[in-house]
């Protein structure tokens, strides 16, 4: 694996029981890249993400993160690999029984030997990075949807991971909040050099965030396009890809032909 490749997936096959979701999927993500996994609903985006972060084991194929194989790792190795990345889950997945600050300090207290004063300072630093200054004593129930996402991001970044995974960052957010979150993701990538892997079907987010994307398709059970989203929108030979990036119904042409 070349040095600048940080995530490598080879021949990944994923299935739930009899139903195969993904078949023989291979791709690589470079260090510091903003990489987006796109595709319509039910195409296996989230399944792919769950395989990347080690929540599910592939039926066949391999997943490497930073040179270590996730797909074959035992519990202990997996925990070690999981320290290298942070995940922002769709609903934030913050612990409702803790305050916002405690959600972040939990990780720092578990994995470092920092004294309480520094933990508090780092918590405030993380919250400042996601523009949630002064909210550390708030309970999770008191936060709005957008704030929960940013709080989840702050928690994902608690241990300065080299890779951040986002599952549908704009899901359930209004366009403005969603654009702000995209901007924040860009800033973090540029300032900290963090590798960003996003799962999304939100076109505006995809065009803002992605340097490179792969598009999954339900019937193909794998990747049907790879590249810069703008180039795919304008020049992909595959009508399914053009339809997705241009936000058109896939059968548009056929329907026009028959109807009129």
């Amino acid at each position: 694996m070349p040095i600048d490749v940080v995530i490598s997936v080879q021949g990944l096959t994923a299935s739930y029981g009899e139903r195969t979701i993904l078949e023989n999927v291979s791709f690589e993500v470079r260090r510091g890249e903003r990489f987006v996994i796109v595709g319509g609903s039910g195409c296996g985006k989230t399944t792919l993400l769950r395989h990347l972060i080690g929540l599910q084991r592939p039926v066949a194929g391999h997943v490497w993160i930073d040179g270590e194989e996730v797909s074959q790792a035992n519990e202990e190795q997996l925990r070690h690999i999981q320290r290298k990345f942070g995940v922002l889950f769709q609903s934030g997945a913050l612990f409702g029984s803790l305050t916002l600050g405690e959600n972040i300090s939990l990780l720092l207290e578990e994995f470092t030997n920092l004294p309480a004063e520094l933990v508090r300072l780092i918590v405030r630093l993380k919250l400042s990075m996601v523009r949630l200054d002064g909210f550390e004593d708030f309970r999770i129930a008191e936060l709005s949807g957008g704030m929960k996402k940013r709080a989840g991001l702050a928690r994902a970044m608690a241990l300065d991971p080299a890779i951040l995974f986002f599952d549908e960052p704009s899901a359930g957010l209004d366009p403005v909040t969603s654009a702000e979150l995209d901007e924040l993701i860009l800033q973090i990538n540029r300032s900290l050099g963090t590798t960003i892997v996003v799962v999304s079907h939100e076109l505006s987010s995809i065009f803002t965030i992605a340097e490179r994307c792969i598009m999954l398709d339900r019937s193909a059970k794998g990747i049907i396009a790879e590249g810069n989203p703008r180039e795919l929108r304008d020049g992909s030979p595959d009508p399914r890809v053009r339809a997705f990036f241009n936000r058109q119904p896939e059968q548009a042409t056929r329907r026009v032909g028959v109807g009129h």
Partner: peptide
């Protein structure tokens, strides 16, 4: 640039502001 980037994301006054 990496250090500058990290520090640039943080609002120093807000970090030390007492609620």
């Amino acid at each position: 640039p990496a250090i500058e980037g990290l520090l640039s994301l943080v609002d120093q006054q807000a970090v030390f502001a007492q609620p």
